[in-house]
């Protein structure tokens, strides 16, 4: 496997950094080399922010932020038109968006013509499972559908390990349920 680079777009407080970290950690568990890091600006809830992943079979030397990702994950639907989410995304790249719209709608809104577009209503899933508008964990599930960087089980194990002590059994399970639902419900077009 060549190095995979992922860029996450979210708003401060939506958990983009946490999602990127959990993905990286789950991949590390499988023996891969990883990086997970946010783009730190002034940290303000609600402000657009980015987080990044690099995952590779080989040691990772590069320490810049990601400019040409293979995968872009947009955690907040309003960012699709607010900022250039497809910047640097290659023709065979994947654009994954939390939205109630269809992949075709997203292609139209972003102008992303080639590659794959995936959509999933992660906010709705989060509200139904976790009862909180936290779409970050469902987006991880959707991501694994388009690129099996790790298996759902490997990710779930890592998420369980991170959450159980912090938020308890019930909420942890709700998060895991959200991941599974998004994995099954994501529409690729």
């Amino acid at each position: 496997m060549a190095m995979i680079e992922i860029r996450w777009h979210g708003r401060g407080g939506q958990g983009a950094k946490t999602a990127s970290q959990f993905l990286g950690e789950a991949a590390l568990d499988t023996g891969k080399y990883i990086q997970s890091f946010p783009e730190y600006g002034p940290e303000r809830a609600g402000a657009p922010m980015k987080a990044f992943n690099r995952i590779s079979e080989e040691p990772i030397y590069i320490h810049s932020s990601v400019t040409n990702p293979e995968i872009v994950v947009v955690i907040d639907p309003t960012l699709v038109i607010a900022i250039d989410v497809i910047g640097g995304l290659g023709d065979d790249g994947v654009l994954l968006v939390n939205t109630d719209k269809s992949p075709e709608d997203i292609r139209k809104a972003t102008g992303f013509k080639k590659g794959k577009v995936g959509t999933v209503d992660a906010t709705k899933i989060a509200l139904e499972t976790l009862k909180l508008p936290m779409p970050n964990m469902p987006m991880l599930g959707a991501l694994l559908k388009v690129n099996s960087l790790v298996t759902i089980d490997q990710l779930s194990e890592r998420v369980r390990g991170k959450f159980l002590k912090k938020i308890g059994e019930e909420k942890t399970n709700a998060n895991l349920e959200g991941i599974k639902r998004a994995y099954n419900e994501v529409k690729i077009g």
Binding site: Q21, G24, E25, L28, Y33, I34, Q35, S36, F37, P38, Y40, I60, H63
Partner: peptide
């Protein structure tokens, strides 16, 4: 070490 670049990036 480099602030944020390595201090706040997660690596193995």
């Amino acid at each position: 070490q480099d602030g944020f670049i390595t201090s706040h990036a997660v690596e193995g």
